[in-house]
Design a binder for these strands. Structure first.
Lengths: 131, 131
DNA sequence: GCTAGTCACTTGCAATTTGCAAGTTATATG
DNA sequence: CATATAACTTGCAAATTGCAAGTGACTAGC
């Protein structure tokens, strides 16, 4: 059982789990970054910048920093000169998968969004999951 | 199969279902309002304002208006002088329930948020759903 | 050594959003 | 008429978003 994620700079405004989660991921970009780390095999800043369409560079770097400070993402250097990092999801980050699946399914059903667009190439995983 | 929700004032930035959904609900208050419409039996502006802790009045009215314009919420007058409305979720709004459940479970497991706080009084529903 | 390029950001700034506190409107009540 | 209630709107400061340009640390080629 992982310990509770904390961030000493953050005071939750509520005890409610939904409210707390939204304080971390309740914006328009964070879950898309998690999506591409989880489902698209993107790990470097550049890969993420290319795959999360239109994400501004200051937003991407800010969100990666926040995800890291919350313990949803960790990074390790994959080269030294200059040092560059590959990002990956922690257990807590990976545990967001059911959230992503439900959000995607709702968006597909009600907003006509893709299930098998290159950005959301999940068909085989979904089919596997449901069978 | 409900038709695709649309909002003529809105241009989605992506085909991706997750991205599209986040354009509607990717903020800190919208899902909390949906929560209280769905799970707490709150219907009027006042009830929602009292139960969604600390929600500013301009935010609450703005979000209700947006939810309505997207077709997730509808309202009907429950009195005439002055006219006042009760809000309720549409089918599309109710279909956000699995999203809320997953968000809440993640927040409970990783952020120590409640599952049976008064704001999130869902134990019996969850148990029913899982049995 | 210089130039050009790449990658990973930071910076400056305008636009937008958030949120606080006060105010307004349409009613009812005494 | 004064007071109260409910449902907002408004003004404004602070924060965030996002665009475009710039910076730093490297490599490659000449």
């Amino acid at each position: 059982m992982p310990k509770t994620l904390t961030n000493k700079d953050h005071q939750f405004r509520s005890e409610c789990s939904i409210s707390r989660t939204l304080e971390l991921v309740g914006d328009k970009w964070t879950l898309l970054i998690v999506r591409d780390l989880m489902w698209h095999g993107k790990h470097t800043y550049r890969e993420l910048h290319d795959s999360v369409k239109k994400v501004p560079t200051n937003i991407l770097s800010d969100r990666l920093r926040r995800l890291q400070s919350w313990g949803l993402v960790e990074r390790e250097p994959y080269q030294e000169r200059p040092v560059r990092y590959a990002y990956r999801l922690t257990e807590a980050g990976r545990a967001l998968e059911p959230v992503l699946v439900q959000v995607m399914q709702w968006g597909h059903q009600f907003l006509g969004g893709g299930l098998n667009q290159p950005e959301c190439a999940m068909n085989s995983r979904l089919e596997g999951a449901s069978s």
